[in-house]
Design a binder for these strands. Structure first.
Lengths: 180, 180
DNA sequence: TTGGATGCAAAGTATTTGCATCGGG
DNA sequence: CCCGATGCAAATACTTTGCATCCAA
């Protein structure tokens, strides 16, 4: 299996979802939750009119709306398919687990969210941001803590360069516990 | 799922295999392939007599022997359960896939090998070494390259400490391609 | 002899896919 | 109305487990 489905894999990687352009999803996102999330997309043009959505030819369906809202409002921001599915059920929404997986796959292909494999059993997703950040996982509590360190980033590129390689993506996870 | 089954999880983590002490496996290992592998265990006392194996009360079975040999002789040193299973079949050995998984789990619990989840689909194992090393994966070829960087190691501990945390394990994977 | 180790098949868990139906545009 | 999106159930991929048998000590 040569191709690595990395947590930091390239955007637009899945050919199956070429038709779903990132910008179209941003439009969708903007309409749904404009106030909350515009800052996530920096200087990218963010539409705020339903008319734009229609222009994009994208269907604003209930599962997509709800799932985006969950990422936008959940305080951890790190959700598994199961998390989302159960939360939807609790709010009385009739959304199938398969749809949750499909929507997550599409959002990832569109570059809206990022997929992580912290424990090798189930994937965790979070809203994609422009900056690279890494994660610490508290093995006692399961808590996920984000951090950024330019020194490590820099060193990584240096190491790759020393091998004549370019970094396409990376995944750094620290498994931690409270210092005793 | 609070507990992270990290690629760098603690040794002896699985209570189910407490009876299989690391040293017992080292004895087994030594007998099987003493010349090849003694260097892996540094200054640890390595027995070279079958008598020691018997003292340890450990059964030297064909699947265990064969699988250890594969890790010792395979040049990549990074093997999946499927890799091992297929290789065994090709050499005519009658070893079940379930046994491969069981042996790998035991070896990991004994601290002899380390488990990685590079791509979230299937686990990869390699012989455990005393030093921490990280991995680069060439996304074009699937090649796995090991590297060590004390600067990054150091920085990681610093970052954890700044949050009042201690690092239990870590996983750093760089997804790379040949620099163009 | 005897309890641990194994092979096989069945069960699990996480995720994907086929297909008829539904619904946004 | 149409084609993409969905729900459901079946299928898949990887891994674990139950159980009768086997074998190293």
């Amino acid at each position: 299996m040569p191709q690595a489905e990395s947590a930091n894999a390239t955007r637009h990687s899945n050919p199956k979802f070429d038709s779903l352009a990132r910008n179209e999803f941003i439009l969708l996102f903007a309409v749904i939750d404009a106030g909350h999330c515009t800052h996530l997309f920096g200087d990218e043009k963010v539409a705020t009119q339903n008319q734009d959505l229609k222009d994009a030819g994208l269907k604003v369906t209930l599962p997509r709306v709800k799932i985006l809202q969950m990422f936008a409002t959940n305080d951890s921001g790190h959700l598994s398919a199961e998390d989302i599915y159960k939360a939807l059920q609790e709010t009385g929404e009739d959304v199938g687990l398969a749809t949750v997986y499909r929507v997550l796959t599409q959002f990832e292909a569109a570059g809206l969210i990022t997929k992580h494999n912290f424990d090798g059993t189930h994937a965790i997703y979070e809203l994609a941001t422009d900056d690279h950040h890494d994660h610490m996982i508290n093995i006692k509590t399961g808590e996920v803590i984000e951090f950024v360190d330019s020194l490590i980033e820099q060193r990584q590129h240096q190491i790759a360069a020393e091998h004549g390689l370019t970094i396409v993506g990376h995944s750094l996870v620290l498994y931690v516990k409270k210092a005793e």
